[in-house]
C-alpha cells in the first residue's frame, strides 16, 4: 500500500465515530429551484417557487456542499474538493471518487430554515489487491433544522486510491 494511502487509512481509523457539524445556512426556495433547473428538472413543483405545490427539491440539500458565502482557498484541496469532505485525506496525494449513496427522507424540508449537516465516519475498509489497493469509506450524514428536526439522512461511500 502506498504511504499516502496508508496514512489516509490510519487517519480515517482514528476518526471513526467522531461527529462533525456544519451549518449550511438558510435554504431559499429560489436556490432550490435553480438547482432543479440545473439538473434538467421540468416538474413545476420543483422548479417554480410560485407553484402552489412547490417543494424544495429533496436532492438539493443532500447535494449542497457548503452554505452561502465564498469558500476560502485554504478550505480546498488542489483538486478543488473541500479538505474536510473525505475524512483522513487532507493534504495527502490520493485520488478521491464518489462510490454511491443511500438516502432516507423523513420529511420534506420547508423553505427559509437554517440547515445543519452532521457527518460521522462509520467504516473504513481496504479493497483490491496490490498494487491497486484502495480504501472504501462510509460516512453517515444527517440534515436537520431547529424547527423540523431530522429531515434526511444518508450513508455516502467514498473511494480513496
Amino acid at each position: 500500500m502506498r504511504p499516502a494511502l496508508r496514512e489516509a487509512e490510519a487517519r480515517a481509523l482514528a476518526s471513526l465515530g467522531h461527529t462533525g457539524r456544519r451549518s449550511l445556512g438558510r435554504v431559499r426556495a429560489v436556490d432550490a429551484a435553480a438547482f432543479a433547473e440545473a439538473a434538467g428538472e421540468s416538474d413545476p413543483r420543483l422548479t417554480d417557487p410560485a407553484h402552489p405545490g412547490f417543494l424544495l427539491h429533496p436532492m438539493y440539500l443532500v447535494s449542497l456542499l457548503r452554505g452561502p458565502g465564498p469558500a476560502g482557498q485554504e478550505e480546498l484541496r488542489p483538486d478543488g474538493m473541500y479538505r474536510d469532505e473525505v475524512p483522513g485525506t487532507d493534504g495527502l496525494d490520493v485520488l478521491l471518487m464518489a462510490g454511491g449513496q443511500r438516502l432516507t427522507w423523513h420529511a420534506p424540508l420547508l423553505p427559509e430554515q437554517e440547515l445543519e449537516r452532521t457527518h460521522r465516519l462509520d467504516s473504513v475498509h481496504r479493497k483490491g489487491r496490490r498494487p491497486a489497493e484502495f480504501l472504501v469509506l462510509v460516512v453517515h450524514k444527517t440534515w436537520s433544522t431547529p424547527r423540523q428536526g431530522l429531515v434526511v439522512e444518508a450513508d455516502e461511500t467514498f473511494l480513496v486510491r
Binding site: G40, E41, H57, P58, M59, S63, G99, G100, W105
Partner: peptide, 30 residues
C-alpha cells in the same frame, strides 16, 4: 457529478410514484 446522477434516479422514481414527496429512500452505486 454523482449528485446529478442521483437527481436523474430520483426523477425516475418520483415520476413512477406520481409525486416527489412519495420518494422515501433512494440509493445507488456509481
Amino acid at each position: 457529478m454523482a449528485q446529478l446522477h442521483g437527481c436523474l434516479l430520483f426523477r425516475a422514481a418520483a415520476r413512477w410514484a406520481g409525486d416527489p414527496v412519495r420518494v422515501v429512500s433512494l440509493g445507488w452505486h456509481n
